[in-house]
Nucleic acid binder design. Structure first.
Lengths: 203, 203
DNA sequence: ACTTTTGTTAACCATTTGGTTAAACTAATT
DNA sequence: AATTAGTTTAACCAAATGGTTAACAAAAGT
């Protein structure tokens, strides 16, 4: 018997929780701040999500569910390796540009509590390397690309796509570049990264 | 009049604080836990370092001072570009292997409080890209390497060297690899990363 | 109409946490 | 031995924090 007054209180809470947790992390987040941002009383948080931990897990799963399908795109579609690399790097960098807090949040919390990701592994849609591995090994055998371990190639692709966002403040400081210039660099990376990788592995 | 009994209480505290802060971060760390790990009373923490904030800053500066000189090695020494890349990736990966919490700690805390790194920028020894930029541009002009922006190359080098440590639990989960296998991958990366980069940029 | 269920709040509670105080202890100085 | 100054601790404190309770409001069911 929901009051129509604000039928989506639960969503408001989740939205506020996302915003606060992703900026401050589990330890830095305050239930009061989430309540304020959702425009409700603190007790209502516990009415919908029983504890800080459960609210956090809802946020984390939601965030992870945004990132995982994007990963599967590169791992499990039908296109050629080169197309995969081009599409993935471009799409992933575009996607993260719109959600700049996401990768740092997910990685930080996984590091804080590594068992956490094990829960995720059961879920359908969890990324799996098998198809990608076969494809890379195959291309290597056919001498289409230089010898490389699929795992290393995957790590390289992900590193080049994701790290610039996680290390942004550091990179800006070292390179003495402002936000606008950094944005240009990121924009360039949508094509640069794929080219960089393909140059490296092509036979 | 220092008691010789334990002249290095201050160092014990710093050591314990490093351990706790680097594992739990500023928000997750507890002064009591640091005191316990240092084997002293909580009040002594405040006797030597007035507040949690000041103790944290001491730890952060110490951590950053470990990473920065390593960066300068690639940026400002006299060797050829290729040698720089080889030495840096190999040395940096070796170094971080011995301090696996360091990069995540530094990057996480910079993201939590981006103004923080601005304090560091004044310090001597803060990494500076100018020399590296000149060298890369020069190599490009001489057609020794393919055209590439020095900033992008720098980001790539750092991404490929550092990200695997920050994303380790994630990468292990996706690749279905255990700690031992991951250690092998990291070991391989000491040479793989340089080769991957050089393959990509060589003319 | 009235009873039940759901949504919402203000006030409250127990615990944790960073920080303080005053006293005790230690060792060099006089 | 008495003084002095630095070091260490137990006990304490106020604020913050996650969580609960009891009362109230609004729908929905009957």
């Amino acid at each position: 018997m929901k009051t129509p007054k604000d039928q989506n209180t639960e969503q408001n809470i989740l939205q506020a929780a996302k915003s606060v947790f992703q900026r401050k992390g589990m330890d830095g987040a305050r239930m009061q701040e989430i309540a304020d941002e959702a425009g409700i009383n603190k007790a209502l948080l516990h009415y919908y999500y029983r504890s800080k931990q459960l609210l956090f897990e809802a946020v984390f799963k939601s965030a992870f569910s945004l990132l995982a399908p994007q990963l599967n795109k590169i791992l499990n579609d039908e296109s050629s390796l080169e197309d995969k690399i081009k599409n993935f790097t471009s799409n992933y960098i575009s996607f993260i540009s719109k959600h700049p807090y996401l990768p740092n949040f997910v990685i930080q919390e996984i590091n804080r509590n590594p068992e956490f990701i094990l829960n995720m592994k059961g879920n359908i849609g969890f990324p799996n390397l098998e198809t990608f591995k076969k494809q890379v090994d195959d291309e290597v055998n056919k001498k289409h690309i230089k010898p490389i371990k699929a795992e290393q190639l995957f790590i390289n692709i992900l590193s080049l796509s994701v790290f610039p966002f996680i290390g942004a403040p550091l990179l800006k400081a070292i390179g003495n570049i402002d936000d606008a210039q950094f944005k240009v660099l990121v924009e360039e990376r949508k094509t640069h990264v794929a080219q960089f990788i393909i140059n490296s592995i092509k036979a």
